[in-house]
């Protein structure tokens, strides 16, 4: 009977290993004419949280998609590489993933800031946007960032929005989320747990449109942001190559095509 038990255990191990081997087969292999060295030969591995529709998210079939994912795929092609988009689930972990060579680049709507530039290098901006305050439709006492004081404000952890709202509210009122989309959905529920959410204007507009959320933006952009691809500090070879590829996509119209598909406008300026 001990034998039988061991057989079952070994059988389970075998099945597990077999299915594990079947995991990494989605791409057809590198093309071989790469213009730059990457962590995995022939692949451009770029990461985002995967929770930031319409920039990076999964569709119902489980495929990673969105503006940044398509842009990353186009960049990869321009660099002679196969694209390998990765979702980390945690926005705050992205910098760590690049520093530890698990990602070639962050393409996860990471705003270029001085602080972040100390630990990673940023490419030229590939889109420009800005933070906007969203409130529930029934809320009328929040009209500017100053009014946020004393209110519960939802933001994504480690984001520039978190940094910004902390100038106005205390730690007690800070509600951090993994996903801006979820924060907005929570706001729409209209409970006391959230009075406002600060997030990107495109993200907010799309959520209102698609999911019929009971929320509205307050005023104009609170601040402007430039978003770039982040690479490991000192990896100038890859950085130059990303900048070159980005410029090429802008020049040949591919950038505008992708941007219009998602936003009906070019979001480069």
């Amino acid at each position: 009977m001990k034998k039988k038990f061991m057989m079952i255990v070994i059988g389970m191990l075998f099945v597990g290993l077999l299915t594990a081997c079947g995991d990494e087969d989605d791409n057809n292999g590198p093309t071989g004419d790469a213009t730059v060295d990457t962590i995995e030969d022939g692949y451009f591995t770029f990461g985002s949280s995967g929770l930031y529709k319409p920039f990076n998210y999964e569709d119902l079939d489980g495929n990673l998609t969105g503006f940044e994912v398509e842009l990353g795929e186009a960049l990869a092609e321009e660099m002679g590489l196969k694209p390998k988009p990765v979702a980390t689930q945690d926005f705050g972990a992205l910098i760590e993933e690049v520093k530890s060579d698990r990602l070639d680049a962050i393409m996860g709507s990471m705003t270029i800031t001085e602080d972040r530039a100390k630990s990673i290098d940023f490419s030229d901006p590939y889109y420009r946007s800005g933070g906007v305050i969203y409130v529930h439709n029934d809320t009328s006492d929040i009209e500017s960032p100053e009014d946020l004081e004393g209110h519960n404000v939802g933001v994504v952890a480690s984001s520039t929005y978190e940094e910004m709202v902390m100038e106005y509210i205390s730690e007690d009122n800070l509600k951090t989320y993994q996903s801006d989309n979820v924060a907005l959905q929570d706001l729409s529920a209209g409970t006391d747990r959230l009075d406002a959410v600060v997030t990107d204007r495109f993200v907010g507009m799309m959520q209102i449109e698609e999911n019929d959320l009971d929320i509205r933006p307050v005023g104009e952009r609170v601040f402007d942001e430039e978003i770039g691809a982040g690479v490991k500090k000192g990896n100038t070879e890859l950085l130059d190559e990303i900048n070159r590829a980005l410029q090429a996509l802008i020049d040949n119209g591919t950038y505008e095509e992708i941007s219009k598909k998602w936003f009906d406008e070019s979001i480069l300026e």
């Binding site: 979702a87 689930q89 972990a93 959320l213």
Partner: peptide, 23 residues
Amino acid sequence: VAFIGFQDLFNRAQRIQSSTGMA
């Protein structure tokens, strides 16, 4: 393990919630 980005069941559910709003 969803929180280190491993694509397991719970991770998938979080993504579906995020993109559909159907918590």
